[in-house]
Design a protein around this nucleic acid. Structure first.
Lengths: 150, 150
DNA sequence: GGTAAGCCTGTACCTCGGTACCGGATGCAA
DNA sequence: TTGCATCCGGTACCGAGGTACAGGCTTACC
C-alpha cells in the first residue's frame, strides 16, 4: 500500500514540467523537500504531482509564484477550516485582472481611434491637434508599466 | 532661430523621464546621438523632447521598445509618404491587445466561477469534481506565459 | 578662480519565471 | 561488473525595461 515513490524526472513528466523547474520551485519554497534515497536522490510521494498541478492551475489564474507559495502555505496551515484565505485572495486577484482588462480596453480604444483618424506617422502626429494619441507625459511614465507589454 | 540646445537633464525633465533612461534609449538605438559640446556633453535640439514623448506614447499603446525603434526608423525613412507602416502595425497591435483581453476575460470567468463555487482550498479543490479550476496540464504550461502575470 | 551641480563612460544590479550547463555521484538493468 | 540514464548541487544566462553607483571631467555661476 505504500505507493511507489517517484523520482524527480517522473514527477516532472507526470506534471508536464521541466526537471529544472521542479528544482526551481524547491528553491522558491513552493515545494517542500521530500525524503531522500541513501544516495541523496529525492523520492516524492504521488501527491507531489497534485501539488504541481495546483501550482500550474494557480499560475493560469494569474497568481505569481510568490502568491502561489503563500496560498499553499496558508492552505496547509489552516487545512480544511473555512476561509483558508483562497476566497479573499481570489477576489483580490479578480479585481486586479479587471483593472488590467480596463487598461487594455483603454489601449484598444486609443488604437482604434488612431486607425480611424488615419494616423500614419508618429512624429507628425505628435504635432497635430487632430491626432488622438496621448503624447503628454502621464503619471507612471517613469516606472514599470506593470500592465502592458508585448 | 536656432533655438536653445538642451542638455541631457533638461531633455529628461521635459519629457518626464530619468536621465539613465535616456542613456538606455541611446543604447537601444531609439534615439540618435546628438551633437556634443567641446567637452563631450550631449546637446539636444528641442525636437528631442518630442521624440521622447512619442516613444512614451507608443509604449502606452503596448508597443515594446524594439517595436518603437522600428516605428521610428521607418517613420524617418519614408517620411510623409503614405503607409509609413504605422497603420499596419497599429492594426497588428490591436489584434494582439484583443487577444490579451480575451485571455484575461477567460481568467476572470474562471476566478468568478471559483468564487461562486465557494472554493477555499486549492489542494482540496484539485480532488473535487465540483471545482471549476483547470488542474489538468495545459498546452503551453512549460513555457513563458507571455500574457498573464502580476 | 573656486566651487557645486551636472554630465561622461562603464559596469553592475533588479524582477520574473524559468532554462542550460558543469563535473561528479547514483541507480538500475543486463 | 559494466554501462548508461538519471540525478545531484552550483552557477550562469535569457529578455524586458530600466535603475544605481563609481570615478573622473565639464560647465556655469559668483
Amino acid at each position: 500500500m505504500t505507493g511507489g515513490w517517484l523520482r524527480t524526472g517522473e514527477v516532472a513528466d507526470a506534471a508536464g514540467v521541466n526537471v529544472q523547474t521542479l528544482r526551481y520551485y524547491h528553491r522558491r519554497g513552493l515545494l517542500k523537500e521530500p525524503r531522500r534515497s541513501n544516495g541523496g536522490h529525492r523520492l516524492y510521494p504521488p501527491e507531489a504531482v497534485t501539488v504541481l498541478r495546483v501550482i500550474k492551475a494557480a499560475q493560469r489564474l494569474g497568481f505569481t509564484l510568490g502568491e502561489v507559495a503563500e496560498l499553499l502555505e496558508t492552505a496547509s496551515r489552516r487545512h480544511g477550516r473555512p476561509d483558508g484565505g483562497l476566497r479573499a485572495r481570489a477576489a483580490a486577484k479578480l479585481a486586479e485582472v479587471e483593472r488590467k482588462i480596463a487598461d487594455l480596453e483603454a489601449i484598444r480604444r486609443t488604437l482604434t481611434e488612431a486607425l480611424d483618424a488615419g494616423c500614419d506617422d508618429l512624429v507628425a502626429c505628435a504635432a497635430s491637434p487632430r491626432c488622438p494619441l496621448p503624447f503628454s507625459p502621464q503619471p507612471g511614465d517613469g516606472q514599470r508599466s506593470s500592465t502592458v507589454a508585448a
